[in-house]
């Protein structure tokens, strides 16, 4: 089966006044049609940069220095990203972190959904309005006709996030990128929003890329996980495998640092040190090695890409787990 989204050895740099930040290095990922992948890691690990690069909306200071991004067979980086212009919003859509910031504060939310429809579909006038109301109903907003003319400030955070989802799903995309869709929302609202994304994904056969720092959340909603650390993907594998038998020491520590399922506070592990400064010229091949307990001289040599079990890959010289039972 060919992947819907295929990122191959993608590298991205930011040229800044204080030096070149190597934000992504040799990042490879595959997401099949209708699949769900969780991208997890600390803040600053490059999760959002990666998702912005997929949509071609990275910062002006960013340069892609190598690799390819293919979506349903089309090279998104060819011709300066011209293919992206017609696909963004229609084939690939994104839910941003903070709905209050991402929505236009002085435009009725229904209008904002219509904007997407006018850009990408043949719907006009009353038909577009009717479809926009349908979109609001799809994301289970009560009383969609009335909410159509609401402004973002009149809606709660959870409702704003539903509107964001409605905008993203208006053109029935094949890939939805959700960048921390529930940060800042209450757990009860978070559960409702995440179930909504999952159910809509299943209904419409849509693939989901969930970006989160919450491992518990990723565990509940993704088939596969990719763990990012300092611009590298250090481990990819089926969610349960990664939780039960993490191979990379960083994954293992992340799992132990998550309070979900822990019985005692003393069992919570912390990860010593910080992310390395990505501007340094002498970054080691393994960017985790300086924080790692298992560091050895081998860590100064280029990273292997080991297959622990089918679909479970790790970039480490000292993978911890045996192949999962």
């Amino acid at each position: 089966m060919s992947a819907l989204l295929e990122i191959d050895k993608l590298s991205l740099e930011f040229r800044t006044r204080s030096g070149i930040v190597r934000a992504l290095e040799n990042v490879s990922l595959q997401l099949p049609e209708g699949g769900s992948l969780g991208l997890v890691g600390e803040s600053g690990s490059g999760k959002s940069v990666l998702s912005f690069a997929v949509l071609g909306i990275q910062d002006a200071a960013a340069t892609i220095t190598g690799g390819t991004i293919r979506f349903a067979g089309t090279d998104l980086l060819a011709d300066g990203g011209s293919a992206m212009k017609t696909m963004r919003g229609r084939e690939l859509a994104m839910i941003f972190q903070n709905p209050r910031v991402a929505l236009n504060p002085i435009r009725q939310v229904g209008r904002q959904i219509e904007d997407v429809l006018l850009r990408h579909t043949a719907l006009r006038g009353a038909a577009a309005r009717a479809r926009a109301i349908e979109c609001l109903a799809d994301v289970r907003i009560p009383d969609p006709e009335r909410r159509y003319s609401a402004y973002p400030f009149e809606l709660s955070g959870g409702m704003c996030q539903r509107v964001m989802i409605a905008i993203a799903l208006a053109c029935k995309p094949r890939l939805l990128i959700a960048d921390e869709p529930t940060t800042g929302l209450d757990v009860t609202t978070q559960a409702a929003i995440m179930r909504l994304i999952r159910d809509l994904g299943r209904e419409k056969g849509m693939a989901t890329l969930l970006i989160t720092h919450d491992l518990g959340l990723a565990r509940d909603f993704c088939d596969k996980l990719a763990v990012m650390h300092a611009g590298h993907i250090v481990e990819v594998g089926p969610t349960e495998t990664l939780f039960r038998t993490p191979a990379h020491p960083y994954t293992a520590q992340l799992v132990r640092a998550t309070p979900v399922g822990q019985e005692r506070l003393e069992n919570l592990a912390s990860i010593p040190g910080n992310l390395p400064d990505l501007r340094r010229g002498d970054l080691p091949p393994c960017r985790f090695s300086e924080r790692c307990e298992l560091r050895s001289p081998a860590c100064a040599t280029p990273l292997p890409n080991l297959v622990v079990s089918p679909g479970h890959l790790v970039g480490c010289h000292h993978p911890q787990a045996r192949s999962s039972p």
Binding site: H213, T258, P259, E266, L268, S270
Partner: peptide
């Protein structure tokens, strides 16, 4: 705080 730091702060508070 990040989950990696959260654990240390919680243990500190305890």
């Amino acid at each position: 705080l990040d989950v990696s730091v959260q654990a240390v702060i919680l243990q500190l508070l305890d």
